[in-house]
Design a protein around this nucleic acid. Structure first.
Lengths: 193, 193
DNA sequence: GGCCGTCGGCTAATCCTATTAGCCTATGAG
DNA sequence: CTCATAGGCTAATAGGATTAGCCGACGGCC
């Protein structure tokens, strides 16, 4: 059974499988090598080192998240787009909790492009609110904080009580929407963009 | 120079210093031993293992955060309490970014009590909104998500643009407040608690 | 057809960290 | 004075990361 020839992408595939199945801490070069049916040092022919592998994984996950976010926002606008974005984000994280937890948050040049694309989508979701310049940036930050915070906590199993998470998340979305609909003085939308 | 005698607490102190100065990943038993001027295995006389040390660190940080949160909420209520809580939380995380990043999110029995106390404070900050039962829980979750998300991202340096972070955070607080002031049907406050 | 460079795997070796086992000493209780 | 204990130590084991250097298969080229 000729296993598929190794390549950086294939290594990342294996890494993702490990992360999904055993958690982010189980992502180890020797674990990847084990799955690849190869000796650990051989991986260095495809990936610079473990740190880079983690970055590549982050890039991949960021890409998937971007896709999800993009699909959510497509064809919608205003509150509807915002809620769809938030729901999509959360459901991606809930579907792949370990993968989501494996995301490296600290910005790195290698993932900057993927990150920017994702920010672009979030920005697009906010378009209908007509936010200008800085106001849009503040809004994007808040949206990121809300979505990321909820996703991390849910992925970590930090919400222990029985209350329905969908409802909690709906409230979060309500907060975001209602906050944007009643912007404070400094961040009021300017003339239609 | 009689170094202070080692003890579990002293070990955690050293661990925190390492985390603060070198980041969460630098928290290693041998690093702690180095600072303590002791051989690595000696630490096992005070701490079960690295995993436990991490849990102890989490407990300590949770305690500090609880103190900060508690002080913020004391003597305030309503929107003011909420904003003070959010500001305090954020400023703690900003003051000790590595420490904040070292927090283990996954709930563990050893930190459950500390976590519950913190949740209690958040709940107290929401008291004035008169939320009943589930509604209060959903609100706490949202608040946690917002505060934690912002704190994590800020600590990781994920907000790169020049825009003032205070302003972004104020918008986040505005979202939370305005969302609570206009609760959707399901989560409307009941008769005054 | 034969030669050569490169790709991608391998083994050996090094370093670090965690963790366990077992030893040893000072110290306070009795 | 004796002894148990606390708390430090050394030796040793087990992983995991990484580097160095070896080697065979394969495609391209003369």
């Amino acid at each position: 059974m000729a296993r598929a020839p190794l390549s950086p992408d294939a290594v990342v595939d294996l890494a993702l499988r490990i992360v999904d199945e055993e958690g982010p801490d189980a992502l180890t070069l020797s674990a990847v090598a084990g799955r690849a049916g190869v000796a650990t040092p051989s991986l260095y022919k495809h990936v610079r080192n473990l740190a880079e592998l983690r970055v590549l994984v982050t890039g991949r996950v960021l890409g998937e998240l971007t896709e999800v976010a993009s699909e959510a926002v497509l064809g919608r606008s205003g509150d509807e787009a915002l809620r769809a974005l938030m729901d999509g984000w959360r459901s991606y994280a809930a579907r792949h909790p370990n993968r989501y937890s494996a995301l490296i948050q600290a910005p790195r040049p290698e993932t900057a492009e993927a990150g920017d694309r994702l920010i672009g989508i979030i920005l697009a979701a906010l378009r209908a609110y007509g936010l200008e310049g800085s106001a849009a940036i503040h809004a994007v930050r808040c949206l990121r904080a809300a979505m990321h915070g909820f996703a991390v906590l849910e992925a970590a199993g930090a919400f222990q009580l029985a209350e329905d998470l969908d409802e909690s998340h709906a409230l979060l979305a309500h907060m975001v929407v209602s906050g944007l609909q009643t912007l404070p003085r400094t961040a009021r939308p300017g003339p239609a963009a």
